[in-house]
Simulated scan of single mutants.
Amino acid sequence: MSLEETPLKPCKHCGFIVSLDEPDFLYPTNFSRTEWDANCYETAGGCGHFESASSPEGALERWNAELAPGEKPHYPV
Rank of each mutant, 00 (worst) to 15 (best):
M1N: 13
S2H: 05
S2F: 05
L3C: 01
L3W: 02
L3D: 00
E5S: 09
E5F: 10
T6H: 04
P7G: 00
P7K: 02
L8A: 01
L8R: 02
L8F: 01
K9S: 06
P10H: 12
P10G: 13
P10C: 14
K12T: 09
K12L: 12
K12N: 11
H13D: 13
C14W: 04
C14Y: 06
G15Y: 13
I17E: 15
V18T: 14
V18E: 05
V18I: 11
S19R: 01
L20T: 04
L20E: 02
L20D: 01
D21A: 08
E22P: 06
E22D: 15
P23A: 07
P23G: 13
D24W: 04
D24S: 15
F25W: 04
L26N: 03
Y27C: 01
P28D: 11
P28W: 01
P28C: 11
T29Y: 10
T29C: 14
T29N: 06
N30V: 12
N30K: 02
N30S: 08
N30G: 07
F31C: 09
S32L: 15
S32Y: 14
S32I: 15
R33V: 13
T34W: 04
E35G: 14
D37P: 08
A38R: 01
A38Y: 04
N39M: 05
C40K: 08
Y41E: 14
Y41G: 15
T43S: 14
A44E: 15
G45F: 00
G45P: 09
G45W: 02
G46S: 06
C47H: 09
C47Y: 00
C47E: 13
G48R: 03
H49Q: 11
H49P: 00
H49S: 10
F50W: 07
S52D: 12
S52W: 13
S52I: 15
A53N: 08
S54L: 12
S54I: 14
S55H: 05
S55A: 10
P56S: 08
P56C: 06
E57T: 10
E57I: 09
E57R: 08
E57L: 08
G58A: 12
G58S: 07
G58E: 11
A59I: 12
A59E: 04
A59W: 09
L60M: 03
L60D: 07
E61H: 10
R62L: 09
R62Y: 07
R62H: 07
R62K: 13
W63S: 00
W63F: 05
N64S: 00
N64Y: 02
A65R: 08
A65S: 10
A65V: 02
L67H: 12
L67Y: 13
A68H: 14
A68K: 14
A68W: 06
P69F: 03
P69T: 02
P69H: 08
G70C: 11
G70P: 02
E71C: 00
E71Y: 03
E71K: 10
K72L: 06
P73N: 11
H74I: 03
Y75E: 04
Y75L: 11
P76V: 03
P76A: 05
